[in-house]
Design a protein around this nucleic acid. Structure first.
Length: 205
DNA sequence: GTTCTAGAAC
DNA sequence: GTTCTAGAAC
């Protein structure tokens, strides 16, 4: 049928347009980098912004000015830059709240383009933390410590991993990051972690 | 990455 | 009936 062929062509055109429109958000970090409301620090090598949808009381993103799309594009020559980013992150968390526990790391499979180091306090106390993917992306091995990335890069000259393993981690059962207890739902988990709020301070360990 | 919302789970 | 999750977004 003639209309059949025409319809298919229009559909595929629309698919291409839709895909473009639907993927536009992936570049959002480049816009956020230059947003004065989000930017907290900038020098010749890096820009630091507040995460637009923070998943804890303190949640920063540290990005190189140099265009590094993802972990896979890292080269040995970037080791100093990665160390500098982590160091800046530690300074920043100390000046934000020296008593609070933080982690410094990368998502194994980030949603957005442009390499970004997460600097995130371990209270996970935020209305923007809403679902299983949010939780598991910061509390399972999906979150890779900066130190481990640097170690791997130093040892092997690259950072690569099997994506299926990490994708499946996002679907893991919810577990408290402090006491490892399994909690059935996000609302129950959010209530539960409040009782650990004193433990995610670094003063009395 | 978020928003929206259908329908699963309770 | 309400809470909660999970998949589409043209």
């Amino acid at each position: 049928m003639a209309t059949g062929g025409l319809k298919r062509k229009n559909d595929s055109d629309n698919d291409v347009k839709a895909k473009k429109a639907n993927n536009f958000w992936k570049g959002g970090l480049l816009t956020s980098m230059n947003d004065p409301d989000l930017q907290v620090f900038s020098d010749e090598r890096i820009t630091v912004i507040k995460d637009k949808y923070p998943k804890a009381k303190y949640h920063f993103l540290i990005m190189p000015k140099k265009n590094i799309p993802n972990l896979k594009s890292l080269k040995k020559e970037d080791i100093d830059l990665l160390k500098y980013m982590e160091e800046k992150g530690r300074e920043l968390s100390k000046s934000s709240d020296a008593e609070r526990q933080f982690r410094y790391g990368y998502h194994s499979i980030p949603s957005m383009s442009h390499l970004h180091l997460h600097v995130i306090s371990q209270d996970f106390d935020s209305p923007c933390l809403k679902n299983k993917k949010h939780w598991n992306s910061f509390t399972t091995e999906y979150f890779i410590d900066s130190k481990d990335i640097i170690k791997t890069l130093e040892k092997t000259g690259k950072v690569e991993h099997e994506s299926f393993h990490f994708t499946s981690l996002l679907k893991s059962d919810l577990r408290c990051h402090v006491c490892k207890k399994e909690i059935k739902t996000i609302p129950a988990l959010k209530t539960h972690i409040q009782q650990h709020s004193y433990q995610v301070k670094t003063t009395d360990t």
